[in-house]
Amino acid sequence: MHVRVAAPTDAAAITAIYNQGIEDRVGTFEIELRTEAMVASWFDGRHPIVVVEAEQAVIAYASTSPYRQRACYAGIAEFSVYVRRDWRGKGAGRLALSHLMHECEAVGFWKLVSRIFVENDASRQLMRSLGFREVGIYEKHGQLDGVWRDVVIVEYLFARNLAQV
């Protein structure tokens, strides 16, 4: 496996992986499948996206997006990590997220945040192993297929970038 910064030409592969996550109902409240054009819009020049490749194919990605529109939050990004079904549990998610963290620190973000379904033990363990802190739980944060779901809030602070703010 190797990791690299994603390009808009990766949108089709990222879309396929994200749609698997939507279908599997394990990592997102989303229920409508994404299109390649929707994913291509993520490439805004500010928010890093990385992909992991193996066997000449994209097998995982990690992406960032704006946290909030207010200027005071400009240094915070939300992130997501998704792995192709047949590569889950093999380290691709760790590789994607660790590289995304380096990219985010390099461009000046001071914090990464996300929310994870409380029962998603694999994702929660990955976050802890990379130094993310579980901040708390949003109870009944949203419904997925008519069932209320709780999410745990995670954050990672880039100390070097905090000192420069």
Rank of each mutant, 00 (worst) to 15 (best):
H2S: 13
R4M: 10
A12Q: 14
I14M: 10
I14G: 02
T15W: 07
I17G: 00
Q20M: 06
Q20G: 07
I22E: 10
D24I: 06
R25Q: 13
V26K: 13
V26A: 04
V26F: 05
T28M: 10
T28D: 11
F29K: 14
E30N: 14
L33N: 14
T35F: 13
A37R: 14
A40R: 13
A40M: 02
A40H: 08
S41T: 15
S41Y: 08
W42T: 05
F43R: 10
F43T: 12
H47I: 01
P48W: 04
P48N: 10
V50H: 05
V52D: 04
E53G: 03
E55P: 12
E55I: 08
E55W: 11
Q56N: 14
A57V: 09
A57F: 06
S63N: 09
S65T: 11
P66S: 06
R68S: 04
Q69P: 12
R70H: 13
A71P: 13
C72L: 08
A74E: 08
E78K: 11
F79W: 09
V81A: 00
V83P: 01
R84G: 00
R84K: 15
R85S: 15
D86H: 12
G89I: 07
K90A: 01
A92S: 04
R94D: 02
L95N: 04
L95F: 00
L95E: 06
L97G: 03
H99G: 12
H99Q: 15
M101F: 01
H102I: 13
E103V: 01
E103R: 15
V107T: 15
W110P: 08
W110G: 09
K111P: 05
K111M: 07
L112R: 03
R115G: 04
R115I: 07
I116K: 02
F117M: 01
F117P: 04
V118N: 06
E119R: 14
S123Q: 10
R124P: 07
M127C: 05
R128Q: 15
F132A: 02
E134P: 10
G136S: 07
I137E: 11
Y138Q: 15
Y138L: 06
E139L: 04
K140P: 08
G142M: 10
L144I: 04
G146I: 07
V147N: 08
R149S: 05
V151G: 02
V154D: 01
F158L: 00
N161I: 00
N161P: 05
N161M: 03
L162H: 11
A163R: 15
V165I: 07
V165M: 09
